[in-house]
Design a protein around this nucleic acid. Structure first.
Length: 271
DNA sequence: ATACAGGTCTTAA
DNA sequence: TTAAGACCTGTA
């Protein structure tokens, strides 16, 4: 059990910000996440965060996963009330972090996310993991399911995947899984590419367009300047930034700014 | 009932 | 190059 303190870190906000679909609240101030093949429970009281894992696992897995060594204060303070809407959005969601998640899991998760709502995305992914993922137990005997491997999904048929209520996305998933299995797109080399190259490469995969590719770049490849434009962001841009969003002002971290906006539009009740 | 959810693909001009 | 239209499913 590891205790850490950090400002501008809210597990609740990270959980609700729609970038990780396998993090859930299990009690008041207590959350669980399955990632990197592991199950982690964590609690938060004020600025104190308790990780229920070994020191070794914390430093090798979760510190990086939660982007714990990046100081988000600089980003938050760069947004002044000269931009009233953005200031409200950032103040509302300033506990959000951009996670660094597994590339394969994020590819499949955000193919599923298209034309879908977050509640159903979670349900689809849960079903997919229970059907095709490895069954595991924690040291305390808690059951959880890994995210399915590339082979597990490549070997499934479109009809079988449709049984997980994935709808028309089933075909995209089978195609993409097979492309990756055949190494037509190499996941490791994606990690070394520039944003432009990675995005272009990702878009060769079935079911991945500009928006999903951007989500993968932001939530997995950690290209923090990536600004995915979905239906929420599009509406905000039309209403508050009819002359264009000031990307230059937030050079290098537009993706973080995007996530504050997304979360505020989703949960903030503004507009 | 009809519209909409963190869009993409196909087809046609 | 751009613009319809189709596409699974659950919820309001």
């Amino acid at each position: 059990m590891i205790k850490r303190t950090s400002c501008n870190f809210s597990i609740e906000q990270i959980c609700e910000s729609g970038q990780c679909f396998r993090m859930t609240r299990i009690e008041e101030n207590k959350y669980a996440v399955v990632a990197q093949g592991k199950y982690l429970e964590l609690e938060q009281k004020e600025e104190e965060i308790i990780f229920h894992c070994s020191e070794d696992e914390y430093t090798h897995v979760w510190e990086r996963y939660f982007d714990f060594n990046t100081d988000y204060k600089q980003f938050i303070e760069s947004v002044t009330n000269k931009d009233e809407y953005l200031y409200r959005a950032v103040q509302f969601g300033k506990g959000i972090r951009i996670l660094e998640q597994d590339i394969w899991e994020i590819i499949i998760s955000f193919i599923i996310s298209q034309q879908n709502n977050i509640k159903r995305i979670r349900k689809c992914i849960e079903t997919l993991c229970e059907t095709y993922g490895e069954k595991k137990y924690t040291a305390e005997g808690k059951l959880y399911y890994d995210f399915p491997t590339v082979s597990a999904l490549a070997n499934a048929t479109e009809e079988e995947l449709r049984a997980c209520n994935l709808g028309y996305r089933s075909k995209y998933i089978v195609n993409t899984a097979n492309s990756i299995k055949r190494n037509e797109v190499d996941l490791e080399s994606l990690k070394c590419m520039s944003y432009r190259a990675a995005r272009e490469t990702l878009m060769r995969l079935s079911g991945i367009g500009e928006k999903v590719a951007d989500c993968i770049c932001l939530f997995s490849l950690h290209h923090l300047d990536t600004f995915p434009v979905d239906t929420h962001i599009r509406k905000v841009l039309e209403q508050y930034y009819p002359k264009g969003f000031p990307y230059d002002t937030y050079m290098g971290y537009n993706g973080i700014i995007q996530q504050y906006i997304f979360y505020y539009d989703l949960k903030g009740g503004d507009r």
